[in-house]
């Protein structure tokens, strides 16, 4: 249970960083932290105490193993998160070229 709670704390740290911070890079880091907290949550769902790695090999019975599906899900979300962060960083660099700042309160040409 405490592990899930830690997950929640990590999520809140990331959410705080996205909502409250003014620097674009810090917002991107916040998105990354949230992604990792959700990945951790997904892995924790499939975990069981004293569980084995879910590898089926010769002479081994599959007893008491952790859920492999959640691990596959986490792997997929990690890849999606990587591409998201990549697009975000590229955008941040281009925004810095155009505006000369990372401060989102100064990046406000769109109104209405």
């Amino acid at each position: 249970m405490s592990l899930y709670f830690m997950c929640l704390i990590l999520f809140s740290v990331g959410l705080y960083s996205v909502v409250r911070k003014r620097n674009i890079i810090k917002i991107i880091i916040g998105i990354g932290i949230i992604e990792y907290s959700v990945n951790l949550f997904i892995i924790l769902i499939g975990y069981r105490l004293q569980g084995r790695a879910p590898i089926l090999a010769r002479d081994q019975t599959i007893e008491n193993m952790v859920d492999p599906l959640t691990q596959a899900m986490a792997l997929t979300t990690i890849v999606i998160g990587l591409s998201l962060i990549f697009i975000a960083v590229t955008l941040a660099i281009r925004i810095y070229e155009k505006y000369g700042t990372f401060d989102i309160t100064k990046i406000r040409r769109l109104r209405g």
Partner: peptide, 13 residues
């Protein structure tokens, strides 16, 4: 290629 694009952008800047 992602890495190249990022350092390319950074060096241009």
């Amino acid at each position: 290629a992602m890495f190249l694009v990022l350092i390319g952008l950074a060096s241009k800047e």
